[in-house]
Design a protein around this nucleic acid. Structure first.
Lengths: 239, 239
DNA sequence: CAAGATTTGTTCGTATGTATT
DNA sequence: AAATACATACGAACAAATCTT
């Protein structure tokens, strides 16, 4: 490896590996060669290769797994429209063949002060909390924690588990229509749980939405915090 | 430092430094002690401390500068509303005292195929490109590249430079009103230019919006790509 | 299933370069 | 000019997870 002055060695190596990936050099196995092999190839220390790979992992281009190797992870982005009629299934609908929601866990709990305010509940009232993930074509595209007023939506957990769709689960609870009142969007680094459920690398980016849905009478029916892998999802707001 | 089994040393140290920062231990100087000092304090190698600090820099909690030290950077988030009437100055308005837009550079160029389509221009028509940053209370909150049809908006570069506001610059060009047609939101890691202009750490998160504004007659007047530091900004969409 | 080989993850040591004070 | 502090790079060793034999 030639030492260009002013550019760190690991950066140069990172650029070359990225170029190799884009050129399809490793397409057969879908993996980057072992760190020791790359170190030898570029004539540098294994640490230097690791720094280069860490940068690529940051970009979401590769994903390292202990004992297995460093896999290449390149995929297209889903576009997720956000608006008054936002519905997950319809939004992703045409972009994926296989779409499913999976209920991870559910619980009945007392609403926190903040949550009670958002859902316009009285202090002490109970809510149903549902944790779930959504997959499109086998790839995890979101991870949600949702809260519903417990009294009105008893049984929505099983309805969601069976249908895999919030819209259909709400229909079973007598809500034929609902609208998205407000959506907040922010971005953070992936937490350990994100890494597991969304199949990300530590340090990857997660887009976070906090959304309130109401029924046609403007009564809050659901508050949801959803986390999306930023390398697989973007949002579109049409006005 | 006690070796908890199963948790990497640098992670434990990272957690302790973060706790120290949140506890206000370093508030006097606003800086973390030097790496060598931390290494001695925790009884580990300086590399291990560097790994811990790198993780905190990733989270946007600290920011290292060669030769100077590692500074603590914690701040509140601005909330940026997105909707049909989206205007930067009004959106941030009440959240900051001092707000200004700074023109970095401007150029007249031929619209790319993609851009011409978005602005509904004929192939070969020219556009004005403006690059600028916006600061709120002295902190950079966004970095934009904006394109305007060159013919209709001649002189908007100087108008923006003088007023520091797109809305006011457009008024000077005879556009009294405009609406946000569509906004795309995604998130990526900071590029070198982001690090410089938005005062970020490498690896920090940047929220990217791509927006199209039109005049009341639905004619496109501006296409803008804006990059926001995710640790300082979030978006809200009200429906 | 067990043992060994492979591959990434962590930690220490050491040295030198470069920017800032 | 000198001291300080972060940035980069190499070497060695062992741990942990995974795969192969």
């Amino acid at each position: 490896m030639q030492r260009q002055k002013g550019v760190a060695l690991w950066r140069q190596i990172s650029d070359r590996i990225r170029a190799n990936i884009l050129a399809g050099l490793y397409d057969k196995t879908g993996m980057v060669p072992a760190e020791t092999a790359l170190a030898e190839e570029f004539g540098v220390n294994r640490h230097t290769v690791r720094a280069a790979l860490a940068a690529l992992a940051q970009e979401g281009i590769v994903r390292a797994a202990q004992g297995r190797g460093t896999m290449i992870t390149q995929r297209d982005k889903f576009d997720f429209p956000i608006g008054r009629r936002t519905r997950f299934s319809e939004g992703i609908g045409e972009q994926a063949r296989d779409l499913k929601g999976i209920l991870l866990s559910s619980a009945r709990e007392i609403a926190s002060a903040d949550l009670a305010k958002r859902l316009k509940l009285n202090p002490g009232e109970e809510v149903l909390r549902l944790d779930g993930i959504r997959k499109a074509d086998g790839r995890a595209v979101s991870r949600s924690t949702m809260w519903f007023p417990a009294e009105r939506f008893a049984g929505i957990d099983t309805a969601f588990a069976e249908t895999g769709s919030i819209t259909r689960a709400l229909t079973r609870c007598g809500v034929d229509d609902y609208v998205r009142e407000v959506t907040e969007i922010s971005a953070v680094h992936a937490e350990p749980d994100d890494v597991v459920h969304l199949e990300l690398t530590p340090g990857a980016i997660v887009l976070v939405t906090r959304a309130l849905n109401t029924d046609p009478a403007a009564r809050p029916i659901q508050y949801a915090v959803t986390r999306f892998p930023a390398d697989r999802v973007q949002f579109t707001i049409r006005n």
